[in-house]
């Protein structure tokens, strides 16, 4: 068995004295693990930084085997974000959430392409925080817990949407919320439309996506806690506001 694909490195851990077991997110093979011989050595270890774009060649005798990767670097993203604590924490959050959420060997091409686009924006584009926010929405959507923010769940109105129902994940207008508004989550505008927004608004939107990641996604994955890296990013973003 063998295949060749590009992928985002999600994690790397030492295996024995000289090798590493890596976890990569590829468009056609999803989240896939494998051994990199010599992956703990001086030549390859620097390449195996989370977020790196790699050319991967996977081989195994049987499909079920862990198999081994031969890796070639395509793009290192570490240097671009290392000096920027917010971008670095976002990179950690992206790789940790993908590693946490994705089932093994199940392709998710739209999420893959979105993740590549986001990682390329980190620390280089002014809109990367909004891109991160919408990437979390895409992640929820891809995992089957997407929010429907297009129209009010009560009145059907598409204007004046002010809240999100924590139960259904659907938008609600102030009028539709009525006496229930205290039980609803606020709906920051930047969550509906990809447009420049102040840091405080992005932080509030992250609290909303964080709520759904924690209450919908995490329980479906065996009730494991969300990766701490995601909370660290949300905390840093809140401090910016």
């Amino acid at each position: 068995m063998d295949w060749r694909d590009q992928g985002i490195l999600l994690s790397s851990r030492r295996h024995g004295e000289t090798s590493a077991i890596i976890e990569a997110f590829t468009p056609d093979h999803g989240r896939h693990m494998g051994v990199v011989r010599g992956g703990a050595g001086r030549r390859i270890a620097p390449i195996l930084q989370p977020g790196a774009q790699l050319d991967l060649h996977w081989r195994a005798r049987l499909e079920d085997h862990l198999g081994s990767f031969t890796v070639e670097p395509v793009k290192s993203r570490a240097a671009a974000v290392m000096g920027d604590r917010l971008a670095l924490s976002a990179l950690n959050a992206v790789t940790a959430l993908l590693s946490f959420s994705l089932p093994e060997r199940e392709p998710h091409p739209p999420l893959y392409h979105r993740s590549v686009a986001l990682l390329d924006m980190l620390g280089t584009s002014e809109l990367w925080q909004l891109a991160y926010l919408h990437w979390e929405l895409a992640l929820l959507d891809e995992m089957g817990f997407g929010l429907d923010l297009s129209a009010c769940a009560v009145t059907g109105a598409t204007e004046g949407l002010a809240y999100v129902s924590p139960r259904s994940g659907r938008a609600v207008t102030a009028e539709g919320a009525g006496d229930w508004k205290d039980r609803l989550l606020p709906l920051p505008g930047c969550l509906r439309v990809l447009r420049p927004a102040p840091a405080a608004e992005i932080a509030e939107a992250l609290r909303v996506t964080g709520y759904f990641l924690e209450t919908n996604l995490a329980p479906s994955l065996g009730d494991r806690p969300l990766p701490a890296a995601r909370q660290r990013f949300a905390d840093l973003q809140a401090r910016q506001g």
């Binding site: 930084q49 670095l88 950690n92």
Partner: peptide, 15 residues
């Protein structure tokens, strides 16, 4: 270390 984990730790300590 100039790795993702090393620099994440450095920023955390700086904070």
């Amino acid at each position: 270390n100039a790795t993702i984990d090393g620099q994440t730790t450095a920023h955390y300590i700086a904070d």
